[in-house]
Amino acid sequence: GGHTALLGKTQDFFQICDTEGKGFVTRRDMQRLCEELPLSSEDLEDVFDSLDADGNGYLTLEEFSSGFSEFLFGRRIS
């Protein structure tokens, strides 16, 4: 159902970041996205830091998807 579709979308997005198909995203991969997305490399650095929950410098699909679901469901409107 919807959960599977969401998982697929997360994987799509993860692959956009992980252009080399390594299975994880590095800070450098993230910075490369500033050519494709309307975000500065500084913004992308912030994104990386917020998604890299354990701060080891590698963004896994699990970390990526938990950040994505937080964006989808956990966003608080003040």
């Binding site: 979308k9 997005f13 997305l37 309307p38 975000l39 912030d46 994104v47 994505f68 964006f71 966003r75």
Partner: peptide, 29 residues
């Protein structure tokens, strides 16, 4: 709380990021 402030700022950046990915996906099939 400075941590709360940082989280709120990051939330905006994250939202921007995922929104961009979403529009990129739909923008180029």
């Amino acid at each position: 709380d400075p941590n709360m402030k940082g989280a709120a700022a990051n939330e905006g950046v994250l939202a921007n990021f995922f929104n961009s990915l979403l529009s990129k996906k739909t923008g180029s099939p």
